[in-house]
Amino acid sequence: MSDQKKLTVSENDLHAFVDGQFSETRMREIEDHLKTNAEDAQMVASWQAQNEALQKMFQETAEDDDDRLVAASASRAGPRLKVPLQAVAALAIFAAGLISGLPVARYFSTLDNTVEYVQNLPEAARAGYVIYTSEVRHPVEVGAEEESHLVAWLGKRLGVDFVAPNLTKVGFRLVGGRLVPYAGKPGALLMYEDATGERLTVLIGRQPGASETGFKFSQTGDVRTFYWMDGELGYALSGAIDRKNLEALAYEVYQQI
Protein backbone atom coordinates (compact mmCIF):
# COMPACT_ATOMS: atom_id res chain seq x y z
CA MET A 1 0.00 0.00 0.00
CA SER A 2 2.61 2.51 -0.93
CA ASP A 3 3.57 4.46 -3.99
CA GLN A 4 5.73 1.58 -5.13
CA LYS A 5 2.78 -0.24 -6.65
CA LYS A 6 2.04 2.25 -9.38
CA LEU A 7 1.24 -0.18 -12.08
CA THR A 8 -0.90 -2.72 -10.36
CA VAL A 9 -4.04 -2.29 -8.35
CA SER A 10 -4.77 -5.11 -5.96
CA GLU A 11 -7.98 -5.81 -4.12
CA ASN A 12 -6.36 -4.44 -0.97
CA ASP A 13 -5.71 -1.22 -2.85
CA LEU A 14 -9.38 -0.99 -3.66
CA HIS A 15 -10.32 -1.38 -0.01
CA ALA A 16 -7.77 1.23 0.98
CA PHE A 17 -9.13 3.53 -1.69
CA VAL A 18 -12.68 3.13 -0.38
CA ASP A 19 -11.47 3.91 3.13
CA GLY A 20 -9.35 6.87 2.07
CA GLN A 21 -6.13 5.36 3.38
CA PHE A 22 -3.88 6.61 0.57
CA SER A 23 -2.05 9.77 -0.28
CA GLU A 24 -3.78 12.06 -2.78
CA THR A 25 -1.47 10.91 -5.57
CA ARG A 26 -2.27 7.26 -5.07
CA MET A 27 -5.97 8.02 -4.71
CA ARG A 28 -5.92 9.75 -8.11
CA GLU A 29 -4.08 6.82 -9.69
CA ILE A 30 -6.72 4.45 -8.49
CA GLU A 31 -9.47 6.74 -9.69
CA ASP A 32 -7.88 6.56 -13.11
CA HIS A 33 -7.67 2.81 -12.90
CA LEU A 34 -11.39 2.61 -12.07
CA LYS A 35 -12.30 4.61 -15.16
CA THR A 36 -11.07 1.80 -17.33
CA ASN A 37 -11.99 -1.14 -15.18
CA ALA A 38 -15.73 -1.53 -14.82
CA GLU A 39 -15.63 -4.60 -12.61
CA ASP A 40 -13.41 -2.94 -10.01
CA ALA A 41 -15.42 0.25 -10.26
CA GLN A 42 -18.61 -1.63 -9.49
CA MET A 43 -17.03 -3.33 -6.50
CA VAL A 44 -15.74 -0.02 -5.18
CA ALA A 45 -19.14 1.61 -5.65
CA SER A 46 -20.83 -1.18 -3.72
CA TRP A 47 -18.37 -0.90 -0.83
CA GLN A 48 -18.70 2.87 -0.78
CA ALA A 49 -22.47 2.52 -0.54
CA GLN A 50 -22.02 0.03 2.28
CA ASN A 51 -19.71 2.42 4.12
CA GLU A 52 -22.17 5.25 3.81
CA ALA A 53 -25.05 3.10 5.00
CA LEU A 54 -23.08 1.92 8.05
CA GLN A 55 -21.87 5.41 8.90
CA LYS A 56 -25.38 6.76 8.58
CA MET A 57 -26.88 4.01 10.67
CA PHE A 58 -24.52 4.48 13.61
CA GLN A 59 -24.44 8.24 13.30
CA GLU A 60 -28.21 8.12 13.73
CA THR A 61 -28.02 5.92 16.79
CA ALA A 62 -25.45 8.27 18.29
CA GLU A 63 -27.76 11.21 17.68
CA ASP A 64 -30.72 9.37 19.18
CA ASP A 65 -28.61 8.79 22.27
CA ASP A 66 -27.61 12.40 22.51
CA ASP A 67 -31.24 13.47 22.40
CA ARG A 68 -32.07 10.95 25.03
CA LEU A 69 -29.24 12.06 27.29
CA VAL A 70 -30.13 15.71 26.90
CA ALA A 71 -33.77 14.98 27.65
CA ALA A 72 -32.85 12.86 30.63
CA SER A 73 -30.46 15.34 32.18
CA ALA A 74 -32.86 18.21 31.57
CA SER A 75 -35.43 16.44 33.67
CA ARG A 76 -33.00 16.04 36.56
CA ALA A 77 -31.41 18.39 39.01
CA GLY A 78 -28.12 18.65 37.15
CA PRO A 79 -26.11 17.23 34.28
CA ARG A 80 -25.65 13.60 35.19
CA LEU A 81 -22.53 13.08 33.15
CA LYS A 82 -20.57 15.32 35.49
CA VAL A 83 -20.72 12.58 38.12
CA PRO A 84 -17.18 11.42 38.81
CA LEU A 85 -16.43 7.90 37.82
CA GLN A 86 -14.58 6.91 40.99
CA ALA A 87 -17.94 5.62 42.04
CA VAL A 88 -18.20 3.44 38.96
CA ALA A 89 -14.68 2.26 39.60
CA ALA A 90 -15.65 1.30 43.11
CA LEU A 91 -18.49 -0.89 41.91
CA ALA A 92 -16.24 -2.33 39.22
CA ILE A 93 -13.83 -3.39 41.92
CA PHE A 94 -16.61 -4.93 43.96
CA ALA A 95 -17.88 -6.69 40.85
CA ALA A 96 -14.41 -7.88 39.99
CA GLY A 97 -14.14 -9.27 43.47
CA LEU A 98 -17.37 -11.12 43.10
CA ILE A 99 -16.26 -12.65 39.82
CA SER A 100 -12.63 -13.44 40.52
CA GLY A 101 -13.10 -13.91 44.22
CA LEU A 102 -9.38 -13.66 44.84
CA PRO A 103 -7.41 -10.52 45.64
CA VAL A 104 -10.41 -8.31 46.17
CA ALA A 105 -12.06 -10.87 48.40
CA ARG A 106 -8.92 -10.95 50.50
CA TYR A 107 -9.06 -7.21 50.71
CA PHE A 108 -12.61 -7.29 51.94
CA SER A 109 -12.00 -10.03 54.40
CA THR A 110 -10.07 -7.45 56.39
CA LEU A 111 -13.17 -5.30 56.62
CA ASP A 112 -14.38 -7.07 59.68
CA ASN A 113 -15.34 -4.10 61.72
CA THR A 114 -18.12 -1.61 61.47
CA VAL A 115 -15.89 1.36 60.81
CA GLU A 116 -14.39 0.10 57.59
CA TYR A 117 -17.62 -1.48 56.47
CA VAL A 118 -19.55 1.72 56.84
CA GLN A 119 -16.78 3.85 55.36
CA ASN A 120 -17.10 2.00 52.09
CA LEU A 121 -20.85 2.36 51.92
CA PRO A 122 -21.08 5.81 50.30
CA GLU A 123 -18.68 4.89 47.52
CA ALA A 124 -20.52 1.70 46.63
CA ALA A 125 -23.84 3.51 46.93
CA ARG A 126 -22.71 6.20 44.52
CA ALA A 127 -21.49 3.54 42.12
CA GLY A 128 -24.87 1.86 42.16
CA TYR A 129 -26.59 5.19 41.75
CA VAL A 130 -24.43 6.32 38.83
CA ILE A 131 -24.54 3.05 36.95
CA TYR A 132 -28.15 2.07 37.35
CA THR A 133 -30.07 5.34 37.44
CA SER A 134 -28.67 6.12 34.00
CA GLU A 135 -30.14 2.90 32.65
CA VAL A 136 -33.07 3.65 30.43
CA ARG A 137 -34.21 0.21 29.47
CA HIS A 138 -33.45 -2.00 32.42
CA PRO A 139 -32.59 -0.01 35.50
CA VAL A 140 -33.83 -2.78 37.77
CA GLU A 141 -33.86 -6.56 37.66
CA VAL A 142 -37.23 -6.94 39.32
CA GLY A 143 -39.83 -4.22 38.97
CA ALA A 144 -41.99 -2.76 41.72
CA GLU A 145 -45.05 -4.51 40.29
CA GLU A 146 -43.57 -7.66 41.80
CA GLU A 147 -42.75 -6.01 45.11
CA SER A 148 -43.42 -9.02 47.30
CA HIS A 149 -41.23 -11.20 45.11
CA LEU A 150 -38.59 -8.46 45.05
CA VAL A 151 -38.26 -8.08 48.81
CA ALA A 152 -38.43 -11.83 49.38
CA TRP A 153 -35.71 -12.47 46.82
CA LEU A 154 -33.37 -9.72 47.97
CA GLY A 155 -34.02 -10.52 51.62
CA LYS A 156 -33.13 -14.14 50.99
CA ARG A 157 -29.89 -13.21 49.28
CA LEU A 158 -28.97 -10.84 52.11
CA GLY A 159 -30.00 -13.40 54.68
CA VAL A 160 -32.39 -11.04 56.44
CA ASP A 161 -36.01 -9.96 56.25
CA PHE A 162 -36.46 -6.46 55.06
CA VAL A 163 -39.14 -4.29 53.57
CA ALA A 164 -38.76 -1.79 50.78
CA PRO A 165 -39.40 1.65 52.30
CA ASN A 166 -42.53 3.31 50.98
CA LEU A 167 -41.69 6.84 49.90
CA THR A 168 -44.88 7.65 48.00
CA LYS A 169 -45.98 10.27 50.51
CA VAL A 170 -42.79 12.18 49.77
CA GLY A 171 -43.30 11.78 46.05
CA PHE A 172 -41.05 8.86 45.19
CA ARG A 173 -42.39 5.56 43.94
CA LEU A 174 -40.48 2.29 43.96
CA VAL A 175 -39.13 1.41 40.52
CA GLY A 176 -37.69 -1.94 41.60
CA GLY A 177 -34.46 -3.43 42.73
CA ARG A 178 -31.47 -5.52 41.88
CA LEU A 179 -28.80 -7.57 43.53
CA VAL A 180 -25.42 -5.85 43.68
CA PRO A 181 -22.15 -6.91 45.24
CA TYR A 182 -21.11 -5.00 48.34
CA ALA A 183 -18.00 -5.80 50.37
CA GLY A 184 -17.75 -9.15 48.66
CA LYS A 185 -21.28 -10.17 49.60
CA PRO A 186 -24.72 -9.78 48.07
CA GLY A 187 -26.28 -6.40 48.65
CA ALA A 188 -29.61 -4.98 47.52
CA LEU A 189 -30.09 -1.84 45.50
CA LEU A 190 -33.59 -0.35 45.47
CA MET A 191 -34.50 2.41 43.07
CA TYR A 192 -37.11 5.13 43.45
CA GLU A 193 -38.33 7.75 41.02
CA ASP A 194 -40.44 10.89 41.34
CA ALA A 195 -42.89 12.31 38.81
CA THR A 196 -40.15 14.29 37.06
CA GLY A 197 -37.95 11.25 36.55
CA GLU A 198 -35.54 12.15 39.37
CA ARG A 199 -34.14 8.92 40.76
CA LEU A 200 -32.84 7.80 44.14
CA THR A 201 -31.20 4.57 45.16
CA VAL A 202 -31.01 2.80 48.49
CA LEU A 203 -28.14 0.36 48.93
CA ILE A 204 -28.57 -2.20 51.67
CA GLY A 205 -25.78 -4.47 52.82
CA ARG A 206 -25.42 -6.79 55.76
CA GLN A 207 -22.42 -7.09 58.05
CA PRO A 208 -22.93 -9.59 60.87
CA GLY A 209 -21.54 -8.30 64.12
CA ALA A 210 -21.65 -4.66 63.09
CA SER A 211 -23.13 -2.04 65.38
CA GLU A 212 -25.26 1.04 64.93
CA THR A 213 -23.92 4.36 63.75
CA GLY A 214 -25.47 7.78 63.36
CA PHE A 215 -26.30 9.39 60.03
CA LYS A 216 -23.30 10.24 57.92
CA PHE A 217 -23.16 12.39 54.82
CA SER A 218 -20.92 12.22 51.79
CA GLN A 219 -20.90 14.05 48.49
CA THR A 220 -19.01 13.56 45.25
CA GLY A 221 -19.95 15.76 42.32
CA ASP A 222 -23.71 16.09 42.27
CA VAL A 223 -24.34 12.81 44.00
CA ARG A 224 -25.09 13.07 47.71
CA THR A 225 -25.33 10.10 50.02
CA PHE A 226 -26.65 9.65 53.54
CA TYR A 227 -25.55 6.40 55.12
CA TRP A 228 -25.78 4.65 58.43
CA MET A 229 -25.67 1.26 60.12
CA ASP A 230 -28.75 -0.04 61.85
CA GLY A 231 -27.66 -3.16 63.64
CA GLU A 232 -26.15 -5.53 61.11
CA LEU A 233 -27.60 -3.69 58.15
CA GLY A 234 -25.88 -0.84 56.39
CA TYR A 235 -28.00 1.62 54.42
CA ALA A 236 -26.99 4.27 51.94
CA LEU A 237 -29.44 6.62 50.24
CA SER A 238 -28.01 8.36 47.17
CA GLY A 239 -29.44 10.98 44.88
CA ALA A 240 -28.64 14.10 42.94
CA ILE A 241 -31.05 16.23 44.97
CA ASP A 242 -30.22 18.88 47.55
CA ARG A 243 -28.93 17.90 50.94
CA LYS A 244 -31.93 19.05 52.95
CA ASN A 245 -34.42 17.05 50.89
CA LEU A 246 -32.18 14.02 50.82
CA GLU A 247 -31.78 14.16 54.58
CA ALA A 248 -35.56 14.25 55.04
CA LEU A 249 -35.84 11.22 52.76
CA ALA A 250 -33.09 9.40 54.64
CA TYR A 251 -34.96 10.02 57.87
CA GLU A 252 -38.12 8.65 56.29
CA VAL A 253 -36.26 5.52 55.17
CA TYR A 254 -34.73 5.14 58.62
CA GLN A 255 -38.11 5.34 60.33
CA GLN A 256 -39.64 2.68 58.13
CA ILE A 257 -37.00 0.01 58.43
Binding site: L85, V88, A89, L91, A92, I93, A96
Partner: peptide
Amino acid sequence: QDSLAAALASQ
Protein backbone atom coordinates in the same frame (compact mmCIF):
# COMPACT_ATOMS: atom_id res chain seq x y z
CA GLN B 1 -21.20 -0.93 31.01
CA ASP B 2 -19.00 -4.01 31.11
CA SER B 3 -16.32 -2.17 29.18
CA LEU B 4 -16.40 0.91 31.41
CA ALA B 5 -16.21 -1.28 34.48
CA ALA B 6 -13.30 -3.23 32.99
CA ALA B 7 -11.48 -0.06 31.96
CA LEU B 8 -11.83 1.50 35.40
CA ALA B 9 -10.84 -1.68 37.16
CA SER B 10 -7.66 -1.92 35.10
CA GLN B 11 -6.68 1.74 35.07
